[in-house]
Design a binder for these strands. Structure first.
Lengths: 346, 346
DNA sequence: CTGAAAGCGCTAACAG
DNA sequence: CTGTTAGCGCTTTCAG
């Protein structure tokens, strides 16, 4: 265990005091260059490894920044994690990642661990109904909410304008001439889920289209759900000529099922996805999608948080909303005449 | 800052000693149920949040388990992260994730942070040439290497038998009748990269096929590289009738390019991927691939590490190697007669 | 420029 | 069952 060497060991080994060693180790203080060199060398020789617990205890806070997200197996969240990690590292902070699995108990445990570590701040994507205690703990530290926003917690936030994003998708399809547009979306318990469906309706209204409830299906954000939903859509009396999938996982299920039905994209049916993982660009003809600026969001969240940590003056919370972006590829085109479409499906 | 309440505050507020409070807070010790209740309630009322730094300092080690991986934007690593996080949480440990970006300096910084936190242990995927200091630090803590293995560090390890995996892919194609099999692989600086190409050669030999160097291209594990490599393959004098892509990112690039050339999978060309992300199953006809047991690996790594942490007796390091699994879907079939294939390409 | 000493919050050994 | 006390390793006054 070489990790057991302390500044005391270095001090006695060199015949100096612990405070001198401390000064040498922790940046530029009143100390002669020569003693510093000596001390640094000796520390190296002994295999000294600082004890951050002692430092934290003394300072009252650590240089850890917590990132709490519901899942990591998801291109957007993974990108955010990387960007936050990089931004933190560049500013002398260390990101620690927690995966809450959208489970409120685990979420609380994660936030509690963060609070116990006396972390400098946290970037969080909270679940649908966080424990009161979760909110209380977060209220006592600098926080930035990312991707989702709950008004139960007053803090800065960085979210996507999903309403606008989905509305753009609908507009794009409407402009191509689609009138029967299907929607496969996530649960409406999350702010993101709600916004996406609201955006869908808004998009329809904006284009003078009427919503057909049979064409709108929401459920858990899983490929298996999307497969079922798409089957239902395609088997219905009067199926849609285009489908908007409101999440990556759902996009996968929709594409898979459309394939299974032998439908060609975009000739037989137009498909539009949400967010832009690497593989969407090369799937079949290339999938048209709404991309969201996850990298910018991650970087901004970290900057914002670090600014909050360092600024003592507590200004008002600011909510930044990023606008998604339509990326037109080749999975959307004008609708096939309806009788021929039904024929193709039958 | 409600986080500033200490056991001392609770003690004085209740007129008991700090050790009584300590006992009440930290599990079952000699203490009356009534005082415990009182103390717990008071702690709650005051908004007490334990100070893990103080605990770590006292204990000499934390309950943190570090996971250091080169990247997280990758289905396999993301799955590992989740599984490790869950396994740790279930056993009372807390995972902290670091992303090294395959940069040896960052990797060292990550490991150093872990050492300074006095973490209980670490699960690591090291880069191609770690700093000597990285190895030194890791040598002083319980470690499990995952996915990649370097013999510079003596520790338990959990890796995939990539040789076998790729060889299975080759065998599958050879059995279908393919003789000209292309290979798009990652850099040969990593143990994984090397093993995959060795497996390719072994697979060819096992099937009595000869390697054509023009058909084997390796480079950075990026879709852009795979696109270029595939173009080169398809434009060559005598192109392959099947391609093995030795990583997800490469699979994406290969599929995209094959598409771009107007080739149909599997009629015009057979494609086989490596690892099994969600979207591969529904891509076009469904992509045949070699799946690797990442969930098992993540869970095993965590169990193994925790066992090492708790067992004082240091047994010999054990290297577990997991065998990949061929999943046959519809991107592989018998080769099209070669003249007609060239025709189709031309 | 350097040393001595106090104390961050908690636990555990010892004494009642 | 409860209280007293001594550190864990480090930083930071305050003296020299």
């Amino acid at each position: 265990m070489s990790g057991r060497v302390t500044i005391k060991d270095i001090a006695s080994s060199l015949g100096v005091s612990v405070s001198t060693v401390g000064r040498a180790l922790s940046g530029q203080d009143r100390i002669s260059a020569r003693t510093r060199r000596q001390i640094l060398d000796e520390a190296d020789r002994l295999g000294y490894v600082a004890n951050s617990a002692a430092r934290v205890m003394r300072a009252g806070h650590s240089n850890l920044i917590g990132l709490v997200i519901p899942e990591i197996e998801n291109d957007a969240n993974a990108a955010i994690a990387r960007c936050v990690a990089e931004s933190c590292a560049a500013r002398g902070y260390q990101m620690v990642l927690f995966i809450s699995s959208d489970d409120r108990d685990r979420e609380l445990a994660n936030i509690r661990a963060l609070a116990e570590m006396r972390c400098a701040g946290a970037i969080v994507t909270l679940g649908p109904s966080p424990h009161r205690e979760t909110i209380r703990l977060l209220s006592s530290m600098p926080v930035v909410q990312i991707m989702r926003h709950t008004s139960k917690l007053i803090s800065d936030s960085i979210t996507m304008d999903d309403r606008n994003g989905i509305a753009q998708a609908v507009r794009h399809l409407a402009e191509l001439g689609h009138k029967r547009i299907g929607f496969v979306g996530g649960s409406d318990k999350l702010s993101t889920g709600v916004n996406r469906i609201v955006g869908f309706d808004a998009g329809l209204v904006g284009e003078g289209l009427v919503r057909d409830d049979a064409l709108v299906i929401t459920g858990p954000v899983r490929a298996s759900f999307a497969r079922k939903a798409t089957e239902q859509l395609l088997n219905s009396e009067n199926p849609p000529t285009a489908i908007v999938a409101a999440a990556v996982r759902l996009t996968i299920g929709v594409l898979e099922t459309v394939n299974k039905f032998g439908l060609k994209v975009p000739d037989d049916i137009s498909i539009i996805g949400y967010t832009d993982p690497l593989w969407l660009r090369g799937w079949g003809p290339g999938i048209t999608t709404i991309s969201i600026p996850v990298h910018e969001a991650g970087i901004a969240a970290a900057s914002l948080l670090i600014q909050r940590i360092q600024d003592k003056g507590k200004k008002r919370a600011v909510a930044s909303v990023y606008t998604p972006n339509l990326i037109v590829r080749n999975s959307t085109t004008v609708p096939r005449p309806h009788d021929r479409f039904l024929n193709r499906l039958g």
